[in-house]
Simulated assay, not measured.
Amino acid sequence: MNKITLIFILIFSISCKSQTNIIEIQNRCNVGFSDTDGSTYLKDISNIYTPFVGIWKWTSGNREMTLTLIKQTKFHITSGAFNFYKDRLVGYYVYKENGVTIIDTSGDNLMNEYGLNVDFSIYCGGLVGDSSFQDIKKDKSFVVSLEKLSPTQMKFTGKVGEGTYQIGRTPTTVYLGSTFPLEMFFTKQ
Rank of each mutant, 00 (worst) to 15 (best):
F185L: 13
G163P: 00
V128R: 07
G80Y: 11
V174R: 06
L176G: 11
M111Q: 10
N62D: 15
E113S: 02
N109P: 01
K96C: 02
H76T: 07
S13T: 09
L127M: 12
V31A: 14
G129Q: 09
I11G: 05
K137H: 11
D44F: 12
Q166M: 08
V128F: 04
G38M: 07
I55E: 15
C124V: 06
R28Y: 06
G99F: 02
K96V: 03
N62T: 14
T105G: 03
V31F: 13
I45L: 13
I4W: 08
T40K: 08
K57W: 01
Y175A: 10
G168K: 05
I167V: 10
P151C: 05
T157R: 07
C124F: 05
W56A: 02
D139I: 07
I22E: 13
S121Q: 14
M111Y: 07
K140A: 06
N62G: 03
L67Q: 00
L110I: 04
F82R: 11
K140L: 01
S131D: 08
T66Q: 09
L10I: 12
L69T: 00
P181M: 04
I45K: 12
I14M: 12
T68H: 14
P151F: 03
I9R: 04
N21Y: 11
F82C: 04
T50P: 03
W58P: 00
I11M: 10
P181W: 02
F75C: 13
P151Y: 02
T20G: 07
M1Q: 12
K86H: 08
G61P: 01
S79R: 09
F8L: 15
F33P: 09
W58K: 05
G32Q: 14
S132Q: 09
G107K: 05
D139R: 12
T101K: 09
L127G: 07
L182I: 10
N109I: 04
N2Y: 07
T179P: 01
N30Q: 10
D135R: 02
T5D: 09
I55D: 13
L149K: 11
K57L: 14
G80W: 10
K86R: 14
M184A: 12
G129A: 14
Y92Q: 03
R88H: 03
G161R: 13
Y41R: 01
N27P: 00
L42W: 00
M184T: 00
I25F: 04
G115W: 00
V128E: 00
L146E: 01
G80T: 01
N62K: 15
K74E: 15
T101N: 07
W56I: 01
C29A: 14
F33D: 09
V94W: 05
W58D: 00
N109R: 05
K155S: 12
K159D: 05
K43I: 02
S150W: 03
M111K: 08
G177D: 11
N117H: 07
I55T: 15
N27C: 04
T179R: 12
F156T: 00
M1F: 13
T157Q: 06
I70M: 15
F120S: 08
R63D: 15
N21K: 14
T20L: 15
K86Q: 02
K86E: 10
I48W: 09
G168D: 06
S34H: 02
Y123P: 02
S15A: 12
T105V: 03
D130T: 10
F84T: 01
S46I: 03
S39G: 04
V31K: 15
G32T: 10
V160D: 07
V118I: 01
M1H: 12
L116C: 01
S178W: 00
G163C: 08
V94N: 01
I122R: 04
